[in-house]
Design a protein around this nucleic acid. Structure first.
Length: 438
RNA sequence: CGGAGUGUGGCUCAGUCUGGUAGAGCACCGCGUUCGGGACGCGGGGGUCGCAGGUUCGAAUCCUGCCACUCCGACCA
């Protein structure tokens, strides 16, 4: 993409409403624009990252056996009356009347609708297990939206819903999502720690929040240090038996502030292994059994022919929130430092002297060669001064910067800079191109 | 939803206390000089000062009401 033809409205100064670093950097890098409290337009650069994050989430859901569909944002109130949540949800739910004065709502989540879809078609245990997911915009009318996309009112969420014949099978479904989440966040360069979460009235031990450690995180968390560096199980696992991977992690202490038990923490974790830090919740998985299937009559026939409510679980990832979390975890004083997997472009190509024949020729050659190699390149062909170009490239945080200018070309060299380390090297254009194309 | 604030050009803000022809820097447009880590000169465009009432000869400024947004707290992917 040629920058002169792109839409990248970067800001030199920080808009006054932004208090945390990810919000400031997303505004300054021209990724988002606030249209109302907690409601954002995704500008081209931010949209590219959003799509990359979404795609990683999608791929790992599918790898774990979940099947994608897409449910609407608007739902009928009557559906929510079946579960009793239309009245229970409160003012966080955005309620809408259509022209026929029919009560509708902008979905904050989709348990009711997915249960309605399931019960309409699935009648036999032979169709199980089943896990359906979608990636769709949600609206929760937060009393106090803040922190940019970290706590918006409108946000993009991946929500998956599992259906199983009994609790034992539901636990296997739960484990698949547990491992899928670890793999998902690892692919984005994040160290996510699963932490025991409140299960509410259902009880049991099947609910975990996935927390990204970041100094600017919203909540205080406590865990065994080994969990942070444990890494993800990876994709070459037995998806039908993941209990050992789950046990390895749930066996170590990890709790958010509301679930924290200091006495247990000190009893279970040696002092030098105790970690107390700030964290961001990016995922939440939950087993809730028959909570919706029973009132909404989502039943299947078992092997004995008798109908029984299915056991369900739901599994959420805050896709738009993840962008904030990734930036909180990866930035420096100059701007964003994207992990390569989600960077909006792989390479920033900087032409220091557009209009100079040698510079233009070298840049055009590099641009074509890198694109032919399948790399995504943002080519800064603007006539801005070098300092501004460097600052802008550092701000938007592409993994590599290829700098071509008249002085280097006079010696037959160009400069390559790695954003994450700040390392700069000069080399011939061809050697740099072969390295970047690999 | 309780508490505290802020609304002046695209952005950051001054001006409001003490009423008198709307300002600065950045950004933008034109010309020129420049060009390897956010250049400089000259010229130029852009704002019914959040909205609605009121007071006054005269309101960005004073009064009343409303709206929006931000921050601190209680709640959430």
């Amino acid at each position: 993409m040629r920058l002169s033809r792109y839409f990248l409205p970067v800001l030199k100064e920080t808009p006054s409403e932004a208090q945390i670093v990810s919000h400031r950097l997303m505004l300054r890098a021209g990724m988002i624009r606030q249209e109302a409290a907690g409601i954002y337009a995704w500008l081209p650069l931010g949209f590219r990252v959003l799509k990359k994050v979404e795609q990683i989430v999608r791929e790992e859901q599918e790898r774990a056996g979940a099947v994608e569909l897409l449910m609407p944002t608007l739902q009928l109130a009557d559906l929510w009356r079946e579960s009793g949540r239309y009245d229970a949800y409160g003012p966080e739910m955005l309620r809408i009347l259509d022209r026929h004065e029919r009560e509708m709502l902008y979905g904050p989540t989709n348990e009711e609708m997915i249960t309605e879809i399931f019960r309409a078609y699935v009648k036999s245990y032979k169709s199980l297990p089943l896990n359906l997911f979608h990636i769709q915009w949600k609206f929760r009318d937060e009393q106090r939206p803040r922190f940019g996309v970290m706590r918006g009112r409108e946000f993009l969420m991946k929500d998956a819903y599992s259906f199983d014949l009994d609790e034992a099978a539901a636990r296997r479904a739960y484990n698949r999502m547990f491992v899928a989440y670890l793999n998902t966040f690892a692919r984005m360069g994040l160290k996510a720690v699963p932490m025991r979460a409140d299960t509410g009235p259902i009880g049991g031990d099947l609910s975990h929040e996935f927390i990204i450690l970041a100094d600017t995180g919203e909540s205080q968390v406590f865990c065994h240090k080994d969990l942070v560096e444990m890494g993800a199980p990876g994709t070459e696992v037995d998806w039908d038996d993941l209990q050992a991977h789950v046990d390895q992690r749930t066996g170590l202490y990890a709790a958010t502030e509301e679930m924290h038990d200091q006495a247990r923490f000190e009893a279970e974790v040696p002092a030098e292994q105790r970690l107390s830090a700030r964290g961001i919740e990016v995922g939440h998985i939950f087993y809730f059994g028959e909570k919706y299937s029973r009132p909404m009559k989502a039943v299947v026939a078992g092997p004995d022919g008798a109908e029984r409510p299915v056991h369900m679980g739901s599994y959420g990832v805050g896709v738009s929130r993840l962008l904030g979390a990734i930036i909180e975890a990866g930035h420096d004083e100059n701007g964003i430092v994207w992990p390569e997997a989600v960077a909006p472009f792989d390479i920033g190509l900087v032409n220091l002297r557009p209009g100079d024949a040698a510079c233009d020729a070298a840049c055009d050659h590099a641009y074509a060669a890198l694109r032919a190699a399948g790399r995504e390149v943002l080519y800064d062909d603007t006539d801005e001064r070098p300092g501004g170009k460097f600052a802008r490239m550092d701000l938007i945080g592409l993994p590599w910067q290829l700098v071509i200018g008249p002085k280097g070309l006079a010696d037959g060299t160009v400069e390559i800079k790695r954003r994450s380390t700040g390392e700069r090297h000069s080399a011939s254009l061809e050697s740099v191109l072969s390295r970047l194309a690999a």
